[in-house]
Computed example of a mutant assay.
Amino acid sequence: MTTQAPSGTTVDDIVAQLRQLVSGLPPQDGVAVFADAYLTVTEAIRDHLAEGGFFRAPGEVTRLDVLFADRFLTALDAPRPPACWRPLLELRLHPGIMPIQFALSGMNAHIEHDLPMAVVDACEALGCVPDELSVDFHRVNDVLAQVEEQVRDTLMPATEDIRAAEPLVHLMSSWSIDRARDAAWASAVGLWELRDRPTPYAAATDALADATGLVSRCLLTPLDRLRG
């Protein structure tokens, strides 16, 4: 197993790449919707790193954050993206899908699949084990929770028809960022134990990508009747 080479070396590099990505896409593009939300998260992480004291090991967090972001950025240009990203990339311009759905589908793909893979990458690069990243990994939860709430408040469509909004509320309530990160940590620990066994490692990562993609596709169920 080889560690993926990051496209940027600092969190500022990632912020710059995400800004360029968002500015180069039409706002209704589902990739732009997710990338804009992800940019908010990355800027918040960068600010906490700059302040000092929030993370136990800022250098390790930087390495993890860069490797994490690179998996999303690489998937955008891949001839065959991982299964977890295909729903968003295939449906990014579907007119019946709400912006909040694009954001949650991207978060699901990135957290449930890319994050555990990035933890393994970071541990390989840093010469440590997942437990050594655990404290800072879970500190990120506080940042993500704040940003996710902002994203939901900003992107939730206004509608006075409760019955029309019910399908979207159901989809939104079926996915939790806290549960996603808990699952990501469990996946990271499991993958780390398989890292020196290529065949089961490949089987586990393929299964993770497929399962994550299934949830992402469900989150992108078209809800045309919510459009006004």
Rank of each mutant, 00 (worst) to 15 (best):
M1V: 13
T2W: 04
T3V: 15
Q4H: 02
Q4E: 09
P6N: 02
G8M: 04
T9P: 00
D12L: 12
D12C: 03
D12R: 09
D13K: 02
A16D: 12
A16N: 08
R19Y: 02
S23R: 11
S23A: 15
G24Q: 05
L25Y: 06
P26Q: 08
P26I: 11
P27Y: 06
G30A: 00
G30D: 06
A35L: 04
D36P: 01
Y38H: 11
Y38I: 00
T42Y: 05
E43M: 09
A44V: 05
L49W: 08
G53Q: 08
F54H: 07
F55R: 00
R56C: 06
A57L: 08
P58R: 08
P58M: 02
G59I: 09
G59C: 07
V61W: 01
D65K: 02
L67A: 01
D70V: 00
T74F: 03
D77A: 14
A83C: 10
C84Y: 02
C84M: 12
R86K: 12
P87A: 09
P87F: 12
L89M: 12
E90T: 06
R92T: 13
L93A: 10
I97P: 07
I97Y: 09
F102S: 05
A103V: 01
L104D: 04
I111M: 04
H113P: 00
P116K: 02
P116G: 01
P130A: 02
P130I: 07
P130G: 03
S134F: 14
D136A: 09
D136G: 09
F137Q: 00
F137Y: 14
R139G: 02
D142Q: 10
D142W: 05
V143D: 01
V143I: 15
V143L: 14
Q146S: 13
V147G: 00
E148D: 12
V151H: 02
R152K: 13
T154C: 04
I162C: 06
R163K: 10
R163E: 15
A165K: 09
V169N: 10
V169W: 03
V169Q: 08
M172W: 10
S174D: 02
S174P: 03
W175D: 07
W175I: 08
S176C: 13
A180C: 12
D182M: 13
A184P: 05
A184W: 07
S187I: 00
A188D: 03
V189Q: 10
V189H: 03
W192Y: 15
E193K: 13
L194S: 09
P198T: 04
T199E: 15
A203L: 14
A203W: 07
T205M: 11
T205F: 12
D206V: 09
D206R: 12
L208Y: 05
A209G: 07
D210I: 13
A211Q: 13
A211K: 07
A211P: 01
T212I: 05
V215M: 14
V215H: 11
S216V: 03
C218P: 00
L219E: 03
L219R: 01
T221H: 04
P222Y: 11
L223M: 11
D224F: 12
D224E: 14
R227H: 15
G228C: 03
G228P: 10
